[in-house]
Design a protein around this nucleic acid. Structure first.
Lengths: 213, 213
DNA sequence: AAAATACTGGATCGATTGGTCCAGTAAGGA
DNA sequence: TCCTTACTGGACCAATCGATCCAGTATTTT
């Protein structure tokens, strides 16, 4: 318990971050199998022993990579979303949120990119990393659901909860798909346009659901 | 040029298919880097020399894997889609198509699974396999666009073309996202329900677009 | 019967993989 | 001052990677 700054630990933490930075970058464009430890070693400039001192093995490194890239993305998204105007009409709120998500993904695409890869790569027993993503995914899902519930004020409680849940499922799936389409051709794809459409679609779908009951 | 059946070639073709079957299966759940040639060798039961006799290298094998899994999926989807009732109202047609897509993906998930992995795995120079997927993706996109244009009969030609294109982009992206959500938790996820929602959303979005002009 | 074709079997290759080992070094605590 | 802790540097490991080689075996063509 050092009450004063421990330069050793400080230095160690810097090394850890250097390793994570390199690993995030590589992992986001190559996935689990495509990311070799020697590539991480080269790009981070840290020796093998340091990497394995900070992380038990490749799987644990990836779990940390997921965590780090998630927090970077989420913090940015919360920043953008919390600044929005909540007095504006519903459709407009949907589109503002959609724009915020689009911006956050353009700035920090690593988390979703890696997460979706882990979703698809169902290797026999890869354990920790994919598991961590599933947990985070639940967190994101709950957050979206609560945001929608917030916007849906004025409805009876159980109806409101049901609609918010269904909206969250639909919009998250569509956002993933739009992000994928962007990844397929980043230069030509209009990510903001696609997310604006997603906002419109969410509003139109909700309208339909409301008129059905 | 054998006018009569060449038993050598017949046998060789069988081997080729055995290799492809094994490779499709492995690739769909492990991606490019995760699929080792020795795993393909073991699961297909064919020796290394046979694999490399039929396919120049791993990359060419994967291009063939993409082709094969695509055709299996597409043939099934066309079967299901062409059998639908075209006299039914628009919303119902959207939902029928959505159900057909859901069924085809449940039966033949390999193509989309592998394709989305290749979309995300942007490794430096992997060439052929990803390239092949991009080509096919365009084909699918055009097919969806034409189907929507078909349903949108009665509209002025340029408006019809524009709406069909935007509907195709939106629905394909959402379908990808829904498929991903299913991959994340195949046992608990209601794929048919999600695709039904997609059908409704497409109809609601179209209605909104039509009322805007 | 001989030659050519279409494969198969299996040993083998150098490179790379994830991971270990351990002596060394710098800093903090006693 | 000495001991402990926190890390680094680099050699090293068995296993696996994608790929090659070539002698052998059917089968068909000449």
């Amino acid at each position: 318990m050092g009450p004063k700054t421990d330069r050793r630990q400080q230095h160690g933490e810097e090394s850890r971050q250097r390793i994570l930075d390199a690993a995030v970058e590589i992992a986001a464009e190559r996935g689990y199998e495509g990311t070799s430890m020697s590539l991480v070693r080269q790009r981070s400039g840290m020796p093998n022993s340091s990497i394995y001192w900070h992380f038990r093995d490749k799987d644990h490194l990836f779990a940390a990579v997921i965590d780090r890239s998630y927090h970077l993305w989420r913090d940015r998204l919360l920043d953008l979303i919390s600044a929005r105007d909540r007095s504006v009409p519903r459709l407009r709120q949907f589109q503002d949120i959609a724009t915020a998500v689009a911006d956050s993904l353009l700035e920090r695409p690593e988390f979703l990119s890696l997460g979706l890869m882990l979703t698809l790569e169902r290797r026999p027993v890869e354990a920790k990393a994919r598991e961590r993503f599933v947990e985070i995914r639940t967190e994101v899902h709950d957050f979206a659901r609560d945001e929608f519930a917030d916007i849906l004020h004025g409805l009876p409680e159980d109806r409101r909860a049901d609609l918010a849940l269904r909206l969250a499922e639909f919009t998250i799936a569509t956002a993933d798909g739009v992000f994928l389409a962007y990844q397929l051709n980043p230069d030509a794809y209009d990510l903001h346009g696609a997310f604006a459409t997603l906002g419109t679609a969410a509003d139109a779908l909700l309208e339909r659901w409301l008129s059905e009951s």
